[in-house]
Computed example of a mutant assay.
Amino acid sequence: MFIPKRILTAVLGLILVGCGSEAKDLPDLGSVSGVVKIDGEPTEDVIVTFAPVSGGRSSTGITDSSGYYELNFNSTTSGAIIGQHNVFISSNVEHDPNDPEAPMVPPAGNVPRDYQRIEKQAEVKAGDNEIDLSYP
């Protein structure tokens, strides 16, 4: 069974919220958006993760039907920490609702496993950042 995007986004948002960060506690952020293409085609339901090289909270987003993503720092704030990031992509996950012990696995064909192992680098600057990602 496929987990709907809105549910996955809510879960990711809750994970990112952490321990109740207030706006005054936020680091400097830049907004980040772009398009993910796999084998030359925009790809839907790709989880995009930007992990700051210097440490700190990662930002994530999920691509829509046109491959477009926007990063979220937490459930209420968009963007990513300013600076260098390691960038990863992964597939949305499926699991068998009839077997709660079954592992969650990537859907076939969404993001090839070899592409999930590719680490890219990107710099987030203050303001708006358009960072398109192409794989391989």
Rank of each mutant, 00 (worst) to 15 (best):
A122L: 03
I81M: 10
P27H: 04
E41V: 15
V32F: 01
I3W: 11
L8F: 15
P107G: 11
Q84T: 12
I15T: 07
A23L: 09
V46E: 06
V11K: 11
G18Q: 03
A51K: 14
V35D: 09
T76I: 08
V53E: 14
G18R: 02
V36G: 05
K5V: 14
P112R: 00
G56I: 02
V46H: 05
L12Y: 12
F2P: 14
R57D: 06
H95Y: 15
Y68V: 15
E130I: 13
G55Y: 06
E41R: 15
A80G: 09
S91N: 12
F88Y: 13
S65M: 11
N110M: 09
A108H: 09
V111T: 01
G56N: 06
G56K: 03
V105P: 06
E123R: 11
K24Y: 10
G20W: 00
I3R: 12
S21R: 13
S75N: 14
G30M: 01
G109R: 02
F2L: 15
I89R: 01
P42R: 07
P106N: 04
V111H: 00
A108G: 14
P100A: 08
S75Y: 11
T63Q: 05
P4G: 09
P97M: 07
G61L: 02
T76Y: 13
S65C: 05
Y115S: 02
H95T: 10
R57A: 13
Q121N: 12
S91I: 03
E119A: 10
N98W: 03
S66Q: 15
I118Y: 01
E70W: 02
V17M: 15
R57P: 01
A102I: 02
F73I: 00
A102M: 04
M1L: 14
N129S: 04
K37L: 08
I62Y: 04
S58R: 11
N92Y: 08
P107Q: 11
A108S: 14
T9V: 12
D39G: 07
K5S: 13
Q84I: 05
S21C: 11
I38T: 02
N92L: 13
T43N: 03
G79L: 06
V111A: 00
R6I: 12
A51G: 04
P106C: 04
N72K: 09
E22C: 08
R57T: 12
Y115K: 02
G61D: 06
N86S: 15
L71N: 03
F50L: 06
K120N: 06
D99W: 04
G67H: 07
N72W: 12
P52W: 05
P100N: 07
A80D: 07
E44S: 12
G61P: 01
D132N: 15
K5A: 11
E44C: 05
S91H: 06
Y135L: 00
K24S: 14
Y135K: 02
P107W: 07
N92K: 10
P52R: 09
E123T: 13
E119P: 00
T76N: 13
A126G: 09
L133F: 00
V11W: 13
V124E: 06
E94H: 08
P136M: 05
V87K: 04
T76R: 13
V32Q: 02
S78A: 11
